[in-house]
């Protein structure tokens, strides 16, 4: 059978359409909007309530999925001009393109989802070795040194708690995305400083922001390719 060049190209295009490009979920955080109220902790409150994240007073044992730290601690002393030094920056798992935590996990408990790029945590398989915590350059992971339930004032039965001996972190609210929702922090943020979506889709709000605004990431020199972007 002979095939013309044009038909061949049309076939290729049809095949490419049949295999859609995987999504790449990303978040853009507009710091100027976030700094309208520097004391606001609504994002971490909403996240930690939705996912039964315990409030452990001992900072060596604390569990956090999304939290705030000073600009210079997030981006390094040399990038913190006096204008931004000390300003609180929301920090969470960066859902990296090349996640170091996934590479080092000996059981496959943490893995990168091919369909949308989320770095997921399967606590069923976690053996508590904490290699991922050593590997993560962003401090995004927490270890349960003890049963977290005594540190939970209320438990939302819709989401499991964790147990002693496993590592946990932000999942970009995979359970809410599955129902067509947005991450809890994005939804609750009063000034709508966080925008979440598919960065691989040029028409998405997050892709537009990354095209038009100055965006930067934490420790880009490491090559992990974080998918949480900060806008200023």
């Amino acid at each position: 059978m002979k095939i013309t060049r044009q038909a061949f190209l049309a076939l290729l295009a049809a095949a490419a359409r049949a295999f859609p490009r995987p999504r790449r979920m990303a978040m853009a955080i507009d710091l100027a909007k976030c700094w309208k109220d520097r004391g606001c902790t609504r994002c971490s409150q909403a996240c930690h309530a939705a996912h039964n994240v315990p409030q452990i007073p001992d900072r060596r044992r604390e569990i956090k999925w999304i939290w705030k730290d000073r600009f210079e601690n997030a981006f390094g002393e040399e990038s913190a001009s006096p204008a931004v030094a000390g300003a609180p920056v929301p920090l969470l798992c960066n859902h990296c393109e090349h996640p170091a935590c996934v590479k080092v996990c000996p059981t496959g408990a943490t893995f990168k989802r091919a369909s949308d790029g989320l770095v997921m945590m399967d606590e069923h398989r976690c053996i508590g070795c904490r290699y991922c915590m050593a590997a993560c350059p962003y401090g995004s992971r927490s270890f349960n040194w003890s049963d977290p339930r005594p540190f939970l004032r209320t438990i939302d039965p819709a989401y499991p708690t964790r147990t002693k001996g496993v590592v946990e972190k932000c999942t970009f609210c995979a359970e809410r995305l599955a129902r067509g929702g947005q991450p809890a922090c994005v939804e609750v943020c009063p000034p709508k400083a966080m925008v979440f979506g598919d960065a691989a889709d040029p028409s998405s709000a997050v892709a537009q922001l990354l095209q038009t605004r100055h965006a930067f990431r934490r420790k880009p020199e490491l090559g992990a390719g974080p998918n949480v972007f900060y806008l200023l």
Binding site: T154, I155, D156, P157, P160, T161, T163
Partner: peptide, 8 residues
Amino acid sequence: CHVDPRRP
């Protein structure tokens, strides 16, 4: 980890 919704 999983929670009994009747006795959270």
